[in-house]
């Protein structure tokens, strides 16, 4: 099978090892196919003429190839300006999140810190209890976050999960290194910046990626906390396109003007929506390969030895 072409590069491999790699490749390839096929459908639809696609039967290849859907999405200027918002929130949000989270994780990693356990418990607590829609909205509005760009950044500044992951990663860095730095006269800040940060690339990469993608994917904040579509990120614009299809099935019309308006607003074809999906997804997909190199084996230990 196909998997035979990718022989493991290991020098010594027993028959059992060979069996393991065959099974591995088979499973991974099967999984990729299962995942890829439906996604191909999205791609095919996006390159197909909208009216033609509505007739059904477009699976993995466009039947009537066209770039019109993409052209149309870009022509509607709102997606370009929405992109600006998305990029801004992703960069600013991820940077600030990493800064605040890594500071806190480092502090909580120091065993001599009094009140460590209590603080961690208190932080975990927030993962289980939400404020509920109304109190949260009231508080954001009190903080002036409604209709404000910072509502994209501040509420998602520190995630409990990432904080704890980062702290546990710091746990894995040999303590001798911190100790040595402290003996050299580095304070906590010095230890953090000179020892811990350079060694934490893998975890920074993972948390950075997760945070960036969360920022990229979030449509809710735009939909709920922004009353002006001018500050919407791309995902909110997209969600609006998609939800229009959803709400259509409950459409109640009482008069002709409403009926016309309703049928006007649903002229967005499926193909156009899929083009929008591709446009909103493609850029962030490209990020992963760059992040991946930080997960290469031995990053940590190599650094320690060097």
């Amino acid at each position: 099978m196909e998997s035979q072409h990718h022989k493991p590069m290991k020098v010594r491999s027993t028959p059992a090892d060979k069996a393991v790699s065959v099974v591995t490749y088979v499973i991974v390839i099967a999984l990729c196919l299962v995942i890829l096929l439906p996604c191909l459908n999205v791609l095919a639809l996006s390159f197909n003429d909208g009216k033609d696609a509505a007739r059904g039967g477009v699976y993995f290849f466009p039947r009537m190839f066209t770039l019109m859907n993409y052209k149309e999405v870009f022509q509607d200027g709102s997606i370009i300006s929405a992109y600006r918002i998305t990029l801004a929130r992703t960069f600013i949000g991820t940077f600030l999140s990493l800064a605040v989270t890594s500071f806190a994780a480092f502090a909580l990693n120091q065993k001599e810190l009094p009140g460590r356990g209590i603080i961690i418990f208190a932080i975990t607590f927030t993962m289980l209890f939400g404020g509920g829609t109304i109190p949260t909205y009231v508080q954001y509005s009190r903080l002036g976050l409604i209709d404000n760009f910072w509502v994209y950044v501040i509420p998602s500044l520190v995630s409990v999960t990432y904080l704890i992951m980062m702290r546990s990663f710091f746990d894995g860095i040999p303590y001798e290194l911190q100790e040595a730095a402290k003996l050299d006269g580095c304070g906590y800040f010095g230890t953090f910046f000179r020892v811990m940060l350079p060694l934490s690339k893998p975890v920074l990469a993972v948390v950075g990626l997760y945070t960036a993608v969360n920022h990229w994917n979030d449509w809710f904040a735009g939909a709920f906390y922004m009353t002006s579509s001018k500050l919407w990120p791309v995902q909110t614009v997209l969600q609006q396109m998609l939800s229009r299809a959803m709400s259509a099935s409950t459409q109640q019309t009482e008069n002709v003007a409403a009926a016309i308006a309703a049928s006007q607003s649903s002229v967005t074809t499926d193909s156009l929506k899929m083009a929008a999906v591709v446009i909103t997804t493609a850029p962030i997909l490209c990020v992963y390969p760059f992040v991946q190199k930080y997960f290469a084996k031995g990053t940590l230990i190599g650094a320690v030895k060097g």
Binding site: G131, T136, I154
Partner: peptide, 13 residues
């Protein structure tokens, strides 16, 4: 962050 963004709304419960 946790006080302003999480705990105040949680108190709203």
């Amino acid at each position: 962050y946790y006080i302003l963004i999480c705990y105040v709304p949680i108190a709203g419960n």
